[in-house]
Design a protein around this nucleic acid. Structure first.
Lengths: 190, 190
DNA sequence: CCAGTGATGGGACTTGGTCTCATCGACCCT
DNA sequence: AGGGTCGATGAGACCAAGTCCCATCACTGG
């Protein structure tokens, strides 16, 4: 045994998503996931720090977003920098071929509180990364915090719509639209 | 045995905080917590759904905040309603005598990622509650979402300052100040 | 042909969390 | 006083997550 398997983490993630859809997250055992992927519990925990993490990408999303904010034109305001980053995200991450997978994944997340908790943490980390990236652009601390909070909200709204919609609008335009709406609302809250 | 103990959950929470400070969260066992409180593992899980929850109040904070938003003058804008709620929170919850405890608790939370994750979830739930309360005031959905996001940020900033400061300013004034700053920043983000 | 390396398997072990049942004390009713 | 109910607790079996350590196999290079 101990044969090598191509793309072990990918196989584990795929197996996990399948099983979570079939039997639910809590009724699925790490051992079952590993078995379906042709691996063992040991290997599972070698690639993922815990059971929940099998459904979350290793910070690639955050990386793209930070990169996008950093490389936005220097003259752009904080929210415009975020908008640029969201466009970039739509081009490199939330592509059309990943939409179905994202939808399946999100349905599983929504169905389990333990997973929603992990999602909440990721959301917080995402906001923190945006704050840091905006800070490197010279945006004052508190402004960065507000912009990152609103930016995260825009991301969230656009992501939900991107998954739900039957129309084939890409993530980028949806984000632009959401940003405009949030901007409008921010001007009205007082 | 099976003797009755006054305020079992309170004793468990106090014992837990002590032990977490002494040995750290992960190096403390639920059995140890229960023992220090003169109880058992069974009783611990009868009062708390899991180990983390022993450091989180049962939604009283959210309750006060929602109540405050709901009972704000009908003419008040969304953020003003939130400001009223934060004042109420300062009067009934974040009182001077609870400051030391809150500081100890927060230090423990900050030291452990599992606890920070739970905190992230609570933050999300808090925002959701604010959105709902604002919705009942007739605030349009997206405006409510933005206001709740900013309100949560204000709460967070004020809470941090309330814990850190040596000065004896109450939570209410700190929240007012934070709100003004966030308002200013929101007007600048573009 | 042999040694080293990297990915995997196996199994023991701790702990969080669930469940079921027994026990004890307080209170009530006659 | 005596018996019965009820609420809170204790006790212990049990399962799964997560950690650790070591064995094993395939591949690679000399």
């Amino acid at each position: 045994m101990a044969r090598w398997q191509p793309d072990a983490p990918g196989r584990l993630a795929a197996a996990a998503l399948d099983l979570f859809e079939e039997h639910g997250y809590e009724n699925t055992t790490v051992i079952e996931i590993a078995e379906r992927a042709g691996l063992t519990k040991s290997t599972f925990f070698r690639y993922f720090p815990d059971k929940r993490e099998v459904l979350f990408d290793k910070g690639t999303l955050t990386g793209v977003l930070v990169e996008g904010i950093t490389s936005a034109p220097p003259a752009a305001g904080p929210l415009d920098a975020v908008a640029d980053a969201l466009d970039e995200l739509g081009r490199t991450f939330f592509t059309a071929d990943r939409r179905e997978f994202s939808g399946r994944r999100q349905a599983v997340l929504n169905a389990n509180s333990e997973l929603r908790e992990r999602e909440a943490l990721k959301r917080l980390d995402l906001t923190a990364s945006m704050i840091e990236a905006l800070g490197r652009r010279g945006v004052p601390s508190l402004t960065a915090r507000v912009a990152a909070e609103l930016g995260t909200l825009v991301w969230e709204i656009a992501y939900d719509r991107w998954i739900d919609t039957d129309n084939s609008e890409g993530f980028g335009p949806l984000a632009r639209q959401a940003l405009a709406e949030v901007r409008g609302a921010a001007g009205v809250v007082g």
